[in-house]
Design a protein around this nucleic acid. Structure first.
Length: 424
RNA sequence: GGAGAAAUGGCAGAGUGGUCGAUUGCGGCGGUCUUGAAAACCGUUGUCCGGGCGACUGGACCGGGGGUUCGAAUCCCUCUUUCUCCGCCA
């Protein structure tokens, strides 16, 4: 969420910027400012009554010690009404603060100045593209047919075991998964990321910290009996490592990555374009996360973008990088690059990575701060993350783009991992 | 799952109703001394929310939440977590 300070100090700017996200913040900002003013007034009053009470208590303590019982009893007289008033004030103060918090949480992050305006994916800005779009032979198949032809991914089995959207990877299909994961992790390690293996179920605090709760509650699988959530992305546990942490400025940027399965309910989002591997309830992903100094966070973003791009180059996939327009960006992001690969049989671009700078938006919720050497003040870090990469659509594109009448060829970079160069 | 013990500042560890944001040690930072370093000595050292241009100042925080009391780190309730023993188990 945005900080109250920023809203207090530059509310017209906040309102103006959010228009890029097609969000009219006028009312919320006004309401927040109003609540903030009331909150501060009440706290001043509450604090001063509390100060009086504290003094009185101390005096009574001294009297008791000296055995002046009568005086102590007398001093006790005025306390009841003050306590009552203080209690009332404190309760209202808490209610006002909670309301302010609830309002603050409704405001999306401010988009960066370079974010183009726009309503939908149509308005995204293509930054660059690479790779060669293949010419498929006549009779080339979409991946949902290829996986059956070569018996490497089985949706029906998944339906039997769990339900739709939980495929079973078999044989070379399973090996391909494992190879991609290892390849991504190895490349990440070369790029300076520390590998972590986090829990894949998280508590409410973590869900709130990265912004999945409360807004996107319905997107996560909830383990009701223990009130835990299955992660929709490794971003949640990996970023939450830094919840309630004060870092030394010298350690920034911190680079972590992890492979996890990801779980998404995708309620209500099924349609014509989500056949096969295009959208699943469970999928594998390697995620990279950086905690950066606010002064350098866009360098971190660029670094992450080149890392992801490098992966696509090594996989020899035709890709393009787009900077999302305001209307297509997520609630929490200040700047997002999407990576799309060309799916030759489907004749469309598939999103395989979304790499974002959240600036201080998540950090404010997480209370992830840093301190300059020798400084007394703490400052919010910037947090960033990106998929590097999400597997299913990569697999879809690899299968479709690399199909030949003899079988599916494996890109050279992967062969050391798979141990085979062809699925046939 | 059953029984018991515990949770205090970066760490270790005092504190069982009163001036305690908290003794002390270690660590960190600054200084004295030294050619330099070590040792020794002196000082300093948490976070958050308010007020003030500022010096400074009010409030909160001893695992979380609630309660008793004029007053709670200390007493009571509850939740969470950790440790020990037993049971079960990859």
């Amino acid at each position: 969420m945005l900080t109250i300070n920023q809203i207090r100090e530059q509310s017209p700017f906040v309102i103006e910027r959010l228009k890029i996200k097609n969000f009219d913040a006028t009312e919320i900002v006004q309401h927040v400012l109003d609540l903030d003013r009331r909150r501060r007034e009440m706290q001043a009053e509450s604090d001063s009554i509390q100060a009086e009470l504290n003094t009185l208590s101390r005096e009574i303590g001294a009297m008791m010690k000296e055995g002046r019982r009568d005086e102590a009893d007398a001093a006790r007289q005025g306390i009841g009404t003050r306590k009552e008033k203080q209690k009332q004030l404190a309760d209202t103060l808490e209610a006002v603060s909670a309301e302010m918090q609830a309002e603050l949480v409704r405001l999306p992050n401010l988009p960066h100045a370079l974010v183009p305006p726009g309503k939908s994916a149509e308005d995204n800005m293509i930054i660059r593209s690479g790779g060669v779009i293949p010419d498929l032979y006549a009779g080339a198949l979409p991946h949902w047919d290829l996986i059956k032809k070569y018996d490497i991914i089985d949706f029906d089995l998944g339906i039997k075991i769990t339900g739709a959207g939980f495929p079973v990877y078999k044989g070379k299909g399973a090996k391909l998964q494992r190879s991609l994961i290892n390849f991504f992790l190895d490349e990440g390690e070369k790029a300076g990321y520390r590998e972590v293996e986090p829990p894949i179920v998280v508590n409410e605090d973590s869900g709130f910290g990265t912004g999945q709760l409360p807004d996107k509650e319905g997107q996560m699988y909830h383990v009701g009996i223990d009130n835990l959530y299955m992660i929709p992305t490794a971003e949640v546990p990996i970023t939450n490592i830094y919840r309630d942490v004060i870092l030394d400025a010298a350690v920034l940027p911190v680079r972590n990555m992890g492979y996890t399965p990801c779980f998404r309910r995708e309620a209500g989002s099924w349609g014509a374009h989500v056949r096969g591997l295009n959208r699943l309830h469970q999928f594998d992903k390697v995620e990279i996360v950086q905690i950066a100094h606010p002064g350098n966070s866009y360098e971190s973003l660029e670094e992450m973008v080149s890392h992801v791009e490098n992966l696509l180059v090594k996989l020899e996939l035709p890709y393009r990088i787009v900077r999302l327009c305001g209307g297509d960006m997520s609630f929490t992001s200040a700047m997002t690059y999407d990576f799309e690969v060309w799916s030759a049989a489907q004749q469309r671009w598939l999103e395989v990575s979304s790499t974002s700078n959240f600036e201080a938006f998540q950090a404010n919720r997480l209370k992830c701060r840093f301190r300059e050497k020798g400084a007394k003040q703490t400052t919010l870090c910037h947090t960033l993350n990106g998929s590097a990469l999400a597997l299913p659509r990569i697999v879809a594109a690899l299968l479709e783009n690399n199909q030949t009448p003899e079988g599916i060829t494996i890109p050279a970079a992967l062969v050391p991992y798979t141990g085979f160069g062809m699925i046939s």
